[in-house]
Nucleic acid binder design. Structure first.
Lengths: 335, 335
DNA sequence: TTGAAAGCGCTAACAC
DNA sequence: GTGTTAGCGCTTTCAA
């Protein structure tokens, strides 16, 4: 069933059918009804490919993330998919892992599929080395690229971020003021956002004349899901003679690992040992006591990101960067 | 840059360019190289919409799930996306929630977008009432529909499931044999798969001459993420005078809630109280002690599902239903 | 082995 | 307010 069949059965031209289909105003109520009747009777729906060919868009946005099963990224993807749909767009999902090469390849794929825009979910898409970010700038030559929780200064690239520096800075300060001075910052990423967080920790510590040297900044490399291994990392640190009674984690998983470590050591939390997480994910409710964690307002970020993208697609001038602040959700792992 | 430009620059016809593009055999090595050179020089890539119009496919699969931020469903979506990409297909993601109407709407949308197939991730897509499943059978009239962890007998619908009945049956039996007889089954879904699980529990209990009445089968309605509320549900049950020292949960979240309840009651786990979860998700590692949970081999299921879909798309006869068995991963919450 | 030409089903400029 | 027609960029017969 094509537009020709409908036009024939309705006794009008294909142009009229097309007008009805696209809600054009210049059609008399009478013919409109006539056409609509035929369309409904035959359950006709226009061919999306033909339409795409003519309009050069199929109202699809490419959504890339390292790993859509990661608790935090999954939430991001979820919100974004919802809000895109609300705006009449579909989401083409691409899980790329954390390496550069497959990401660049995925980008090419998306652009060849003629998506109207690309959204990168997660700060890990922006690398430290400037030249590694060429793949983003290149893609932005073709379609707008939106970064969730990452920043990159390039034409047609837009960023919506949470103020990670300030959030971690605040959490660290609070922990210090609660009377703990031997704090370890525990992280597993070197992305732009991760660097901001680290800087927030260091700033707060130094401001309070506390050491924030290599030993207090613990980088964990390994699976993002292997909590026992993360706990083991802290145990080894302790065994090396480093003493600490507080952990600021860059992620709820790492915070949970810190909690596991504390329990293994026989510390009671939060009396002897404090832990602060990040993301305020489901995990924060899983432990006993429940995790103090920083909520970075992911849904707000996503909402804003989609708003910005829609603006860009409509040809409006939109802000290149928007910053929201996070909020500490205090629960049982801090005093 | 179109196929015409390339054909002109290469001094051949568009048909030849098309042949080269599609790896047709009937092109001399010499012209092939000539065309390929031009293509590379101009970085030409064919227009996907035009191609879609001609071939009537853009190699895209619709992936529906209730909520891609749900820990379990997210893993499913993740594996499926990966394996589809390995086979040269893209994933159009649709998060539909748990209601029928938006699901039927999403299906129409996907079909109108001319996806080559539809995958439903999660047992919740199949409803108890037969007529509510018409939306699936209808969609299957247009494209193959694959069900992950759900079953529906209709033409062009294929199921890949884990044997939930046997898994729960086994877990229940084991708990009984460990010396616990007052066991509560704790669940939050009435999907087909959920019913199988429930049946597994009831079968094991009755076989051991234990009661599996209304009080031992606790249905929790409410947010799938609100662990404290779930724990509260069990607390209320206890306050009503129901005594129980074991919980078989249909989900790791519910199991964690049971653990929280046990802790609130001052039970020590697993000495006084046993808990068994389901899905063997990240959550199983979060608690102390870690959760005994049933691994339903999600990745294997997904792998098989995609294999079946690819077979169907290639016109092969494929099995309508495939069953894998689960495996109990014993950790610290059971004796 | 190659080329010419007829679609694929729609949109939109233009004419009436 | 409605119809005619020229694309959009590709695939695929059919001839040569």
């Amino acid at each position: 069933m094509t537009i020709y069949d409908i036009s024939e059965k309705a006794g009008v031209s294909i142009a009229t059918v097309s007008r009805v289909l696209n809600g054009s105003s210049n059609v008399s109520e009478k013919t409109k009804k006539k056409v609509l009747d035929v369309i409904r009777r035959y359950e006709y729906t226009p061919n999306a490919f033909a339409r795409g060919l003519g309009l050069n868009t199929m109202k699809t946005i490419g959504v890339m993330c390292a790993d859509s099963s990661d608790l935090y990224l999954a939430k991001g993807v979820y919100y974004i998919e919802q809000k895109l749909r609300d705006n009449g767009y579909d989401s083409l999902l691409c899980c790329t892992g954390y390496e550069l090469a497959p990401r660049a390849a995925a980008m090419d794929l998306l652009i060849n599929k003629k998506v109207d825009g690309i959204i990168l979910v997660g700060s890990n898409f922006v690398y430290e080395k400037e030249s590694d970010n060429r793949y983003i700038a290149d893609a932005a030559l073709q379609v707008p690229v939106m970064l969730l929780n990452a920043e990159l200064d390039a034409p047609n690239v837009y960023s919506v971020v949470s103020d990670d520096f300030t959030s971690i800075y605040g959490a660290t300060l609070e922990m210090i003021q609660s009377g703990i001075s031997d704090i370890v910052y525990f992280y597993n990423s070197t992305s732009y956002s991760a660097q901001k967080k680290l800087a927030g920790f260091v700033a707060a510590m130094e401001e309070q004349k506390l050491s924030a040297g290599a030993e207090s900044c613990q980088f964990y490399r390994g699976s993002h899901e292997d909590i026992p291994a993360m706990a083991e990392h802290l145990k080894k640190l302790h065994d090396k003679g480093v003493s600490f009674h507080g952990v600021i984690a860059s992620d709820d998983t790492l915070a949970l690992a810190a909690l596991k470590y504390a329990r293994q050591m026989g510390f009671s939390v939060p009396e002897d040992f404090s832990v602060s997480g990040y993301n305020n994910s489901l995990l924060a409710m899983c432990s006993e006591p429940e995790l103090t964690s920083i909520d970075n307002k992911l849904e707000t970020l996503c909402q804003h990101l989609i708003g910005t993208l829609m603006g860009v697609l409509n040809g409006n001038e939109m802000p290149k960067k928007t910053v929201f602040s996070g909020e500490t959700i205090k629960r049982g792992t801090t005093r």
